[in-house]
Design a protein around this nucleic acid. Structure first.
Lengths: 156, 156
DNA sequence: GTCCGTGCAAACGTTTTGCATCACC
DNA sequence: GGTGATGCAAAACGTTTGCACGGAC
């Protein structure tokens, strides 16, 4: 069993009038088990190992579909390609990224707004009141130097 | 005089061994006066009115150069094209964007960290300590509904 | 059997690059 | 005059789309 198959949405698909297919499940399984930030190409290569016939277009179409369904989320780390993460069941979780500008390493930091206090509460309140803008989603990245690259650069 | 010509970096260019050219100055002037979030294509069209001979490649090369020099900053609002803003002289200013998911309107909110308190201070401290990560730059966008689109959608 | 999903290839839009020419220094 | 900047065209890149076939229901 190549991927952990813990997360099934066959029922959900049926309810939406969508067909459950092996490629769709394979993409979900991959992202659910990897918990990484994979690009379409990386997903394509990985799923191809199981289903050699799969096409890149199917991967893109599936990723778009799953993003619309709220199962995945699309991120942009400014390297010219979109990245996808499994987010279903984490609707109350806000997700920040630390991106190292040297090695590209991505560190995740999650805050569950149901359990923890929202670190951006004050800022969001200011923005909501000032502009009468309803914030639905935050997209927050911090760029800088990771632990390792910082100590390496200090040696020079 | 089509663009406000208040910001000159001829000297700065010389110091870096770069040549000062009319197209470069025109792009700087445009972004300095417009204060918007212009794409390369939009900049190209605008500068073409003054210098009809300019090529799109030059615009891209100039934008990259000015971004490296810290005169401009490149933003991504997820519409498939990069946008540029003039930021020179605003090194202590943090800049948040509110992007309306319906009309695409972009609202700017600036915080001068020298004069005002950093709204993200606590979060940044947590991240810095926890991961020993040096934050150099924040990239913060909020997506949602602007005032106008909110009231329009409530009528339906 | 009926659709929806798929693979393939071609198209797309933005951005980058190669190269000969041009203009700043 | 030398070197970096430019314009043009072509290429590159990630992504999307058209179309005929195949598989889920």
């Amino acid at each position: 069993m190549p991927f952990e198959e813990g997360w099934c949405c066959r029922k959900r698909f049926r309810e939406c009038g969508l067909k459950w297919t092996q490629t769709r499940q394979a993409i979900i399984d991959l992202l659910h088990s990897k918990k990484g930030h994979l690009s379409a190409e990386e997903i394509f290569i990985e799923v191809k190992k199981l289903y050699p016939g799969i096409g890149l277009a199917t991967v893109y179409r599936t990723l778009e579909l799953l993003t619309e369904l709220g199962i995945l989320r699309k991120f942009d780390f400014k390297d010219g390609r979109a990245r996808y993460e499994f987010i279903a069941g984490k609707e109350t979780v806000e997700h920040y990224h630390l991106v190292c500008r040297i090695c590209g390493k991505i560190i995740d930091y999650e805050v569950d707004l149901e359990k923890q206090q929202d670190p951006l509460k004050d800022l969001k309140n200011i923005l909501t009141e000032r502009f009468n803008f309803s914030i639905e989603r935050s997209d927050i990245q911090f760029f800088g130097l990771c632990d390792r690259c910082k100590s390496l650069s200090q040696k020079d």
